[in-house]
């Protein structure tokens, strides 16, 4: 068997917003759009994970298709005619963003999310007053939300599922796309679906090995370094005062690149570049969280 030796893929021509582009067979619609210079918003897609196409923010209109299609996972076929900015596309994106914003706390999501909400004209307040806590039956006139207290059950990272949009990225990173630890899974169904350990046991009783790869892929701050969480609680979290410096992990000899996020001369979180061939954005517990020792010393003593 000759795995891994890539055979040059045949080129396929598709049309994106009236512009013909050629991409290799097997490319996704999203990749074709990128080739045409059209950026597609997405919440659940990440380069180092298998597309799960659940957020539906990235839908586009495909001529001949009854429903819109998710551009992150749909493969191109020759002659496809793709429209990325039709009224149907805009309505779907607006609604998806609006539905999420009406039920989830997006305040710690990346700045692009707020930009999309504005750009697509989302009106999350039109569903009524936000229910203050997750409940099976909110009061009449209240909009159900996933509001709940954050889970602080270990010293390394915090799970605040009131910020969770259920993009599945953490489950993928914990499972088959990187870590193969499978400490968490999607549990429950429908609006009650949530990310959970078995029987919702605290992380220290679960299979979690604290690699933090779930934290690394979370788009909304639902999973957060304890250091970031504490600074935010104290009102001291300030990205404007932060620097990001790439360096190499000080532990074993694999050579993972660490991006040290530093605020006020303290490491406040650690990430890894998605596109590096060594780590593909993933780290182990020591690389991700084992930095405390450098800021925990008294060289005189």
């Amino acid at each position: 068997m000759n795995r891994g030796v890539s055979v040059a893929a045949r080129p396929v021509t598709v049309t994106v917003d009236g512009q013909a582009v050629e991409v290799p067979e097997g490319s996704t619609v999203r990749e074709a759009c990128a080739k045409a210079g059209v950026e597609i918003p997405t919440l659940c897609f990440l380069e180092n994970l298998t597309p799960v196409n659940v957020c539906r923010v990235c839908v586009v209109e495909l001529e001949g298709s009854r429903a819109l299609v998710p551009s992150c996972s749909r493969k191109v076929e020759g002659g496809m005619v793709i429209h990325t900015d039709t009224p149907r596309v805009r309505t779907s994106r607006k609604m998806v963003l609006e539905l999420l914003a009406s039920s989830v706390d997006l305040s710690a999501a990346g700045p692009e999310v707020a930009e999309w909400l504005a750009a697509y004209g989302a009106e999350p307040e039109r569903y009524g007053r936000r229910a203050p806590a997750r409940t099976a039956r909110p009061d009449l006139g209240e909009a159900a939300t996933v509001a709940q207290p954050p889970k602080v059950d270990n010293a390394l990272y915090v799970r605040d599922y009131s910020r969770c949009i259920l993009c599945y990225k953490c489950v993928e990173a914990c499972g088959e796309d990187a870590q193969f630890t499978f400490a968490i899974a999607v549990a429950g169904r429908g609006f009650d679906a949530h990310i959970s350990t078995e029987f919702d046991v605290p992380l220290p009783d679960s299979a979690c090995v604290y690699c933090g790869n779930c934290v690394g892929v979370c788009p909304t701050g639902a999973l957060m370094f304890k250091s970031e969480f504490d600074l935010r609680q104290a009102g001291a979290w300030d990205p404007a005062r932060q620097t990001v410096t790439p360096t190499i992990c000080p532990y074993c000899g694999v050579g993972c690149t660490l991006e040290l996020h530093v605020q006020d001369n303290r490491i406040v979180k650690v990430t890894s570049p998605l596109d590096h061939t060594v780590s593909h954005g993933h780290l182990c517990v020591k690389g991700r969280f084992g930095f405390e020792f450098v800021q925990d010393r008294d060289p005189g003593g």
Partner: peptide, 19 residues
């Protein structure tokens, strides 16, 4: 109650429809 919860339009759309 029967939405699987996977995609946003159905998971949240069905909640807002019931409300």
């Amino acid at each position: 109650e029967e939405s699987c919860g996977q995609c946003v339009p159905c998971r949240l759309g069905t909640v807002r429809q019931l409300e």
